[in-house]
Simulated assay, not measured.
Amino acid sequence: MEYEVRTERLSMFSIFGLILLWNILTDVYGASILLFSILFLIMVVISALRYKFKVGHKQLVYRFLFFKKTIHTRKLVPSDISQIRFIRLMWAKKAVMIKVKNGRNIRLVEPYPPTAFAQLMEFADNHEVELHKTRDYLILERKKERRGSSY
């Protein structure tokens, strides 16, 4: 199944960078329509970047998209993965770090739909990939179980 990965870090840095760039350029060149249109175009390009993640039977596929066009695809077979690590981010967000033997690690923050966590656990069990859940992640799981049983 294919999952959409949220790009909160990218959007936060892009907004901060655009505000900073706007302040610097208006001080140097003054406010103009051309400057505004260039910055708006940069903002549209940055917001068009997306990540998709697919859990298959024999591999994991991570795609980087611009609008709907695939820019980069990374396929991971179980022998490429050293560990799948479930972590907690900020206050109550779940994330997965896929530690890769060669190359950069893959970070998945709140994939949509949230069944990705269960499917990654199943993938790790089927292919004997090391699975690690941090203490904070286990707290989030218990909190979700308590909330689900009280309703």
Rank of each mutant, 00 (worst) to 15 (best):
V100M: 09
Y151N: 11
I19K: 09
L25W: 04
I38M: 13
N105F: 04
V44K: 05
K94R: 14
L18I: 15
I139L: 12
K68Q: 10
K101D: 06
D125C: 00
F40N: 12
F40H: 04
S79V: 02
A118R: 09
R74V: 12
Q83S: 03
L76Y: 04
R85M: 10
R135C: 00
V109Y: 02
D136T: 05
M12R: 14
R135S: 10
Y3E: 01
F13D: 03
A48W: 14
A31D: 14
F66H: 11
A95H: 03
E128Y: 06
L89F: 02
S79F: 01
L60V: 03
L131S: 08
E8M: 08
R135T: 07
V28G: 08
F13G: 06
I38V: 15
M43E: 03
R135Q: 09
I46W: 06
R107K: 15
P113I: 00
K143H: 05
N102S: 06
K99F: 01
E4F: 03
L18K: 06
D80N: 06
L39D: 03
K54W: 03
L65I: 02
P113T: 00
A31V: 13
F36W: 08
K69Y: 12
N23S: 14
L49I: 15
L108V: 07
K54F: 05
E4H: 08
A95D: 07
I71M: 14
T26F: 05
L89M: 07
Y112S: 12
I42F: 12
S149A: 09
K58F: 02
I81Q: 02
